[in-house]
Design a protein around this nucleic acid. Structure first.
Lengths: 205, 205, 205, 205
DNA sequence: CCCTAAACGAGACGGTACGTCTAGTCTTATG
DNA sequence: CATAAGACTAGACGTACCGTCTCGTTTAGGG
């Protein structure tokens, strides 16, 4: 978000300080965890980082985009690859790891806040898709790809739909809060999605 | 939300005016549709309704709860019962109706804003579950109940999980915005959920 | 400046609080004396008065107009009438009293700051003329009027010019700071203006 | 102001560029005329001159001192010597020329802004006296000196007082703005000062 | 002819105050 | 008592400049 590749080699003027980058991200990350996105103000971040407000606005256009970068520091590579040889097992394990990272944690509260904020902040919405959704889906998509290669599910399955069902269910409970995300729930979701996929239901006819 | 039953019959002083109730709701509803929840300020609602701010705060504790009431005016009974004799058809039709009401409409924007806001406003979160989630789910749950009675799916299926998969998928795309909600998508979701349910995957073992 | 006569008797809404008025003026006055107009910030005034910034902006459009009101509290009626029976004596005493109030005092620094600020703030410039220049000149003008009635100076003298010469000289030294305002200087100024007036030089031919 | 004589002959390193000097002064002068001293920011001057901010700060400690140099470019030698053989005539002509240069002109606005700023900037105040007041007064003082040599006014008159009366009056109207500077006003001022001086009123007894 | 120290442009840096906005509460006069 | 109006404290917003500080890049003199 803050990275802008200089087209030419023209680096004129005083270069941005990495220390400042780090100080801001650390402060933002801390406040995000402690108080949530809503209570994280730019002014507090600046004060906590020992930085002028303009140094923040120079780098991030909105609170959300800053929070996204701060969030990624914590969320980075927290979703490891899994491979159990069977689709249902892979799906269950992926969901279990996801829920461990997210349910009842500071990371989870930050994630929910970012989704809420991204409804209002177009920059954030784009960044969210590009830097969270896409990588995480790419990572998890390999589970489904392997199942297709194994012949466990049809080769022409719509992977996106499978992943939307899988993650949609847990995000739904996380965001609406109408029911708890238990291991039983995760087990049922994984089994249903796997069964549905095996039956060829995800093939576009 | 706004109704507070006076415990005794003691109704002293000037009674609350229904006209004021209506004026506030009409103004809130209009602003909600026009500009979204975030840009709908209590001050604007008061001005548009020709009402003092305190008359709003007397009735609703937060912006979100007011917006919820305003939203329900529009959303009320917009989700009709369907019955086609086959689970997949019922699910597809329900999703289709839901998406027609929500995708790209003012109602949809309001719905998304309310979900976002409910992450910050506990009163709203409770109201949202009680007054939107619960009724809509109850209404749609009958589709699954009928399928169980027909023997189309196992009698001990976990209906909540089925519904979370069904609605989770579409809410996911609505909130994350990573992919469009097309009729193909709806078709695949309905088919996969129906197939998964039929295979007995939703039964708690 | 802050007084606005309500055209009708319509006093709707919560009335402005006199306590707030006083608190703001007291704080502004203190800061004006301590640090001068330039270092007197609206934020400091609000903090010192225990008042929201908007309560200041509601009353005064600019820092200058607030400072003017604060200044008048201190300057009010500090320029008493004098009457010695001879124009030169009157002029000298008036200048002496003025310089005592202004040279090397907090009031003087405030006065100089206000004149400087009034070059940038049209509202303040108007207020300064209406509420400082005009009253003070009216008060001192009586000295010249009496001299005309006595026949000491021609009856058709231009009183404005006489006063501009008198006060112009001391303001000049006060603002330019090129030379000190001594009692000798004041004596010479008073004498020259009195002599010039007696010689009929101030009569428009 | 910008000239600093190097004590030894040690002029090592890259010498200051005259082009830069000129570019800064030209930009400052333009902005000073267009928008006044208050709206002339160092940042704008640098941008307009195509110069780094540090090149300005290297030469001038404050905005005021820069503005003074910029002002002098325009004001330089704009106040020519006059000699009519009679004090009153000389005074009137000097005031007339001064008012032509200053009343309602960009130069006048700059002058007023500089006087205002010099109340806050000690460096500027010193520079103002040394580089504007003193030269202009020295120039105009010759009028009074000639009158003394001619015997038109007493030889022991206090020339400073005479000049403070003369210029005090017009500066007063210029800065306070309570009354216009008309040719009638100038005529009366010149006559009164001349008459007062002739009567020996400016002699210290 | 190279060396080196200062000037140069650009622009980042920590600050500060601005004037605006909204929140939610409080205080009037009027119904 | 409810109401419309609007003042109240509080505090974040995003902007604008300040005066200082790094950068990489000239540009001259002195060796």
């Amino acid at each position: 978000m803050s990275s802008e590749v200089s087209s030419a080699g023209a680096t004129r003027g005083r270069p941005r300080s990495d220390q400042v980058d780090q100080a801001i991200l650390r402060a933002a990350s801390a406040l995000l965890s402690e108080r949530g996105l809503d209570a994280m103000t730019i002014e507090d971040v600046a004060a906590r980082a020992g930085v002028g407000k303009s140094s923040i606005y120079r780098r991030w256009p909105t609170k959300g985009t800053l929070a996204l970068d701060a969030f990624l520091d914590a969320f980075l590579a927290q979703q490891p690859r899994v491979d159990n040889g069977a689709l249902e097992d892979d799906l269950r394990e992926a969901l279990t790891l996801w829920s461990a990272a997210v349910v009842g944690t500071a990371t989870g509260r930050a994630l929910v806040g970012l989704i809420a904020e991204s409804q209002l902040d177009e920059d954030l919405a784009r960044g969210w898709i590009a830097r969270v959704m896409t990588p995480v889906r790419a990572q998890h998509r390999t589970m489904v790809d392997r199942a297709m290669q194994r012949g466990e599910i049809p080769a022409d399955s719509d992977v996106d739909v499978i992943m939307d069902l899988l993650y949609g269910a847990v995000y739904h409970r996380l965001l609406q809060g109408h029911l708890a995300i238990t291991s039983e729930f995760i087990g049922l979701v994984a089994r249903m999605v796997a069964e549905g996929a095996k039956s060829g239901a995800a093939v576009v006819r």
